[in-house]
Write a protein that binds this DNA or RNA. Sequence first.
DNA 1: CACTTACACGAAAAATTCTTGCATTTTGCA
DNA 2: TGCAAAATGCAAGAATTTTTCGTGTAAGTG
Lengths: 161, 161
Amino acid sequence: MSKSSSSIPLDSFDLAILNILQRDNSTPQRVIGETVNLSAPAVQRRIRRMEEAGVIQANVAVIDPAQVGQPITIFVEVEVISETAELIDAAKREFASVPEVQQCYYVTGEADFVLVIVVPTMGAYEALTRRLFFGNNNVKRFRTFVAMDRVKVGLVVPLPG
Amino acid sequence: MSKSSSSIPLDSFDLAILNILQRDNSTPQRVIGETVNLSAPAVQRRIRRMEEAGVIQANVAVIDPAQVGQPITIFVEVEVISETAELIDAAKREFASVPEVQQCYYVTGEADFVLVIVVPTMGAYEALTRRLFFGNNNVKRFRTFVAMDRVKVGLVVPLPG
DNA sequence: CACTTACACGAAAAATTCTTGCATTTTGCA
DNA sequence: TGCAAAATGCAAGAATTTTTCGTGTAAGTG
């Protein structure tokens, strides 16, 4: 499917195409072509090239969590005790492997990890904290922020144009 | 295109379809059908129904920020001074309107907002803080976490099955 | 300057996928 | 049990995606 390979040069056509696709990738290539002034095959070739280069990492449907029984989104800042490479890597793997952990970032600052967690109930979150934080003796402490409003959600990257 | 309307009942077919689409929405309906044991038209009708109901909120391409010149991801916790409805709404609108603000959540806890910001340089972030936080006299303080590793990124919602 | 190579393009054809119409089956409920 | 509503599969039709092919342009070379 997708490749990770080397970075490729992108011109303004590519950026215009990306800007459309990152908002709606069901847009027909013909329509994209009309918008950016290229033929559909040209658009298609550029898309495939960007997919192979990993510029386009995935094509996904965005689901409303509330409508599938997962109405609670929570942010967690995690601070660890020891920051050895091994322990950090272990933590990364563990966090990444948990389905409820929708996003995980290793960060600088007053915390070491920031997690975005999606759960059906606060009870589920409490159980998760027991397993993930209290059950990990490299976790010094964690701070919880419960989302009351998902004001803006997405993965749109700001692009010139 | 998409509707927001009322929530609809989802059976295990729907969930199985969603589980495929939220990982790869370029999967042909025929393949989805073979996987979940339905005909392609049946799959198609279910998808359209879920799109109209807003269960599927969008279909998007995920772009690697680093390859389009936006290599820096930053988390910001924002604490406001006054939490009146008007000021909160104003803040929501302002944050949401900024392209560099990829995600914005209004939260409970030690902060009021959590932002995910994508920028090309630290200079750009600094300029943004000046505009968004120092330039807003309802912002009491903000805390910055710079991502060193995007361990897990996505919008995948944990689904039964 | 002539020549060649590499590369991207558009047009058209081919292949695949998506969409719709329709008869049938299943589901929910009285 | 029987009926009405809803969902299904099949097959045809429409649209999109993908490939093929010939052309044009730009870079590099003798």
